[in-house]
Nucleic acid binder design. Structure first.
Lengths: 337, 337
DNA sequence: ATGAAAGCGCTAACAG
DNA sequence: CTGTTAGCGCTTTCAT
């Protein structure tokens, strides 16, 4: 690897001058600038980022922390993050935590020793004081999708309005004549699931439909628990005529259970999802769902994070946290009538 | 951030001693070792990895290069890579290339300036001299899934036996009484698709069935092109009674087209996929498919890469390339009879 | 067994 | 406008 010294020698200048022309922070005589650039070309010189980072205390790396990249929504978000990171000269480190606080903490420690510039976090749930501590220490940080209510306004967040989205989805179901609407509810530790639950309740209430606890399926052991729950639901004296799933994977399981029961979608039961994961249009029937702009959420998160990083570099402190709420679309396909 | 000097002072020793204790490369008096460890505890000292990397010329980072993490098979592979990387103290950088050679090259350059230790590459296709150059320069490198025939034995590879797997899948179809078996063939620049094609042909030949070019659908513009192709195929005077898709996403599109045509799966047409992506069991009907051990492939790749890194560190050169061929399973669900 | 010193490659005062 | 110098935090001879 050729280093800055070689280039300097070749150009007949000092290392600092080379640094100056490369970073454009200071004026350099046009003639010497040219000489330097030639030497750079000739040697195909690439600055050693490690040395630079060590000196600067900044690595141009960001860490993307997700529960698991195998969960369908995270690849989309990750892609959004990586695209804007790359375009801005940042490298992204991928970290799967399985929502394990110990793993998260260990990763954070490790990233600190690498002088990571910031974090995009989709991982914390419940016990997330280590994340709050990170922000308090002055680390640029943005929470995507998963965060607690009390973190809004104290940390940067990117999400959709889950309450409103769920409300609209359920209202749509009601408008199509459905009255016994079941809910496939995700883990209630997650704020956005509670919000979707609330939206569901409100839509029912506004339509004068009584809330029936018997119609809400709660996630017990993984997403597959909804298979059994759906089957039980359909054996009720008054089975549902629609099921609103708070995520697409849950909707897939619900549809699967319904198929196995010989129930027709949407003739007997409408199914509505939430996410608009890539495969939802490939289901049979294609799934009606609330489209979350996942890629965009990742992109916004990365943009916001990079803004924080630059702001902090300039002003020595983090900017005021901002709350990004992106728009959703209700996508009607053939699983609803 | 507390540094090695602080620890040294606190322990009343020199920085070198602290370094020695922490790296265990040299004998240190038990008493001083203890003093040092205490100081480390007290200060909660974490070595600065950047400084260490700069000194050592090694970063303990590896780069995972994939076409796009949005492609269903890569999250599984990525998870396998990340899990074993983390357990071995490595950090993984995620890079999406869209199969764009320019992006790949840029990434490689960037990674070099970070003293990346090695690459897991799922990206190169056709024009991949830059990847070969990397290995030639002495970079630890393993190719997963996507690589050219001529690279076998010259670089480390991880894959399944696509020929045999396709052969077995098609033979299964034949055994269930199918004779007009269509093929949804992926882009032929990719070696493994050519192999699957070959397996298909061989299975047909061995069963005394004539190869009919009219039954092979070729990918024109993205995976959705199979929608139209499937519909055309079904309008043939002698439509197929089975379709073997060379990847699960293709199978999803095929099934989708079949559904829209009112064709019954598997009564009228059997559908067989390839990959066993997580969602394939959620389809209606659940998809019979060749199960590639994707997570395992990622894990094996990472293990192999780390082995190369360590071997190189010790011996100054890369070990002989090894070819890892993992076993597949034929998973019969309800899309075949 | 331990310390002093040099150096990985870079940037940023500080001079001039 | 440019060179000299110091130093980011670590490892590793080389002495002792």
């Amino acid at each position: 690897m050729t280093n800055i010294k070689h280039v300097a020698t070749l150009a007949g200048v000092s290392a600092s001058t080379v640094s100056r022309v490369l970073n454009g922070k200071s004026y350099v005589n046009e003639a010497t600038r040219k000489k330097v650039m030639e030497a750079v070309q000739q040697t195909n010189y690439r600055p050693n980022v490690l040395a630079k980072s060590l000196k600067m205390g900044r690595s141009n790396m960001i860490c993307l922390m997700v529960p698991s990249i195998q969960n369908l929504i995270f690849p989309e978000i990750a892609r959004g993050v990586e695209d804007v990171a790359r375009r801005n000269g940042f490298t992204v480190v991928l970290s799967n935590t399985d929502e394990d606080t110990a793993v998260e903490k260990a990763y954070i420690e490790k990233m600190k020793t690498r002088w990571i510039d910031g974090f995009v976090v989709c991982s914390n749930i419940g016990e997330s004081d280590h994340i709050r501590a990170l922000r308090a220490e002055g680390f640029p940080l943005v929470l995507v999708n998963r965060f607690d209510e009390r973190d809004i306004g104290v940390m940067d967040t990117v999400s959709v309005d889950s309450f409103q989205a769920a409300y609209d989805a359920v209202r749509y179901l009601i408008r199509t004549g459905r009255r016994r609407i079941a809910l496939a509810l995700g883990r209630e530790e997650l704020y956005f699931y509670r919000e979707r639950h609330r939206g569901y309740c409100q839509a029912l209430a506004d339509a004068g439909i009584d809330y029936d606890e018997a119609l809400v399926m709660r996630e017990s052991s993984g997403v597959n628990s909804f298979y059994r729950h759906t089957q039980e639901l359909m054996r009720l004296p008054q089975p549902p005529d629609a099921i609103f799933a708070t995520s697409d994977p849950k909707a897939f399981v619900v549809m699967h259970a319904l198929h196995d029961l010989g129930v027709l979608i949407p003739e007997d039961v409408s199914v509505m999802g939430f996410d608009n994961v890539m495969l939802s249009s490939m289901m049979e029937p294609p799934l009606s769902t609330v489209s979350q702009p996942l890629y965009e959420m990742g992109a916004v998160a990365a943009r916001n994070l990079i803004h924080q990083i630059r702001y902090k570099e300039k002003n020595g402190e983090l900017p005021e946290p901002v709350r990004n709420v992106l728009d959703v679309d209700l996508i009607i396909r053939r699983s609803t009538r």
